[in-house]
Amino acid sequence: MPVRDGVGATRLKVPRTGPWPTIADYVVERFGHVDPDGLRARFDRGEIVTIDGSPVRVDTPLGAAEFVWYYRELGVEKVIPFDVEIVHQDADLVVVDKPHFLPTTPGGGYVQNSALVRLRIALENPNLTPIHRLDRVTAGLVMFSVRPETRGAYQSMFADRTVEKVYEAVSALPVTGLPELPRVVRSRLSSEKGRLRVAEEVEGEPNAETAIELIRTGESRGTDAGLPVVHTLLRPRTGRMHQLRAHLAGLGLGILNDRFYPVLEDESPDDFDRPLQLLARELRFTDPLTGAPRAFRTARALQEAPR
């Protein structure tokens, strides 16, 4: 199915057998707890289809298709009032400077308010695809593939860990004093589906590594002006989700305005005056198509960083 309004169709795997007489019965049981009649109506309208575009009807039996496709219905979204900025654009690659609070891809109630959808619409390119991702609450550089023919070459750089990534973070200065820096933190991070805190440090062979350096200490100068803070530079050598946040929290340097680490806070609305003080500052790599060195740096700065 083609991209529509910057959003690709969602693919759903359907069981071949089970207690559901029809595909619609399965889908309604899984997703229809809010509006089962509205979901069945989408089948009646032919909005849920098979791989060849044929509509799946309400009475289509279970087992008639392994996958179905549909477009997410766009509800009313909270607008993220910050723009994504293009740092670089060529025939194969787009590099952008993502603001805090804007997700890289649709998810969690944000579709139109995602970097991917905004860019697909602005650049009139439905093939635009992220090569890697940043957390919604993290700002900084993200790379997108322009066309499918060269996408794999750029994606392989991240799989092979040949991209040098540099981050900055600002943390409150611990009352016990500054931990010894620089240092390399190696630990095993575990994650479980459905758990809010994605990364938990557990016993076992390390699977996450971060080099941490001190930039400076001083007083914050943003919303929390005057707070004693630590400004660090981070070089992740692996790419586990929430790795930087978990590693700094483990040193007693939980990042300012982090609602997950070291303490999981109750869910609350975004506070745009207090963004997570984590920034993807630099990306460096050898271009897999030309062999030329490439380097990009964000124009953003962390508001609580000391002078």
Rank of each mutant, 00 (worst) to 15 (best):
R4A: 13
T10V: 15
V14R: 04
P15G: 15
R16Q: 14
P19V: 10
P21K: 09
T22E: 11
T22R: 12
T22F: 09
I23F: 07
Y26A: 02
Y26C: 03
E29Q: 13
F31V: 13
F31W: 12
F43C: 05
E47C: 14
I48D: 15
D52S: 03
S54D: 08
P55E: 12
V56H: 10
R57E: 14
R57M: 08
R57F: 05
A64L: 02
F67E: 06
Y70I: 04
Y71P: 12
E73G: 15
E73S: 07
L74H: 09
K78P: 14
K78S: 14
V79D: 06
F82Y: 10
E85A: 09
V87E: 00
D90Y: 05
D92H: 14
V96I: 06
P99K: 03
P99A: 03
P99V: 01
P99L: 01
T104C: 12
T104W: 01
G107T: 12
G109A: 01
Y110I: 01
N113E: 15
A115C: 12
A115G: 06
R118F: 13
R118H: 04
L123I: 03
P126G: 04
I131W: 09
I131V: 15
D135P: 11
T138L: 01
V142L: 00
F144M: 06
T150L: 07
G152P: 13
G152N: 14
A153S: 12
Y154R: 06
S156V: 03
M157H: 10
F158T: 05
F158W: 15
A159C: 12
D160L: 07
V170Q: 00
A172V: 13
P174W: 01
V175E: 15
V175M: 06
P179C: 00
P179I: 00
E180D: 12
L181S: 01
P182N: 09
V184F: 09
S187K: 11
S191A: 08
E192L: 08
G194N: 05
R197G: 15
R197A: 15
E200Y: 12
E203Y: 07
N207F: 11
N207S: 09
N207I: 06
A208I: 10
L214N: 00
E219D: 03
S220G: 13
G222V: 03
D224M: 10
G226L: 06
G226A: 04
G226P: 10
P228Y: 00
P228S: 00
V230H: 01
V230I: 09
H231V: 02
L233A: 08
R237A: 08
R237D: 09
T238R: 01
T238L: 02
G239P: 04
Q243S: 04
L244D: 02
L248W: 07
L248S: 11
G252L: 06
L253V: 06
L253M: 11
L256Q: 00
L256P: 07
N257Y: 15
V263Y: 14
L264Y: 11
E265Q: 11
E265R: 12
D271F: 03
R274C: 09
R281D: 00
L283S: 00
L283M: 01
R284F: 14
R284L: 12
F285Y: 02
T286D: 14
D287L: 07
R294K: 15
F296V: 01
L302E: 08
E304R: 04
E304G: 11
R307Y: 10
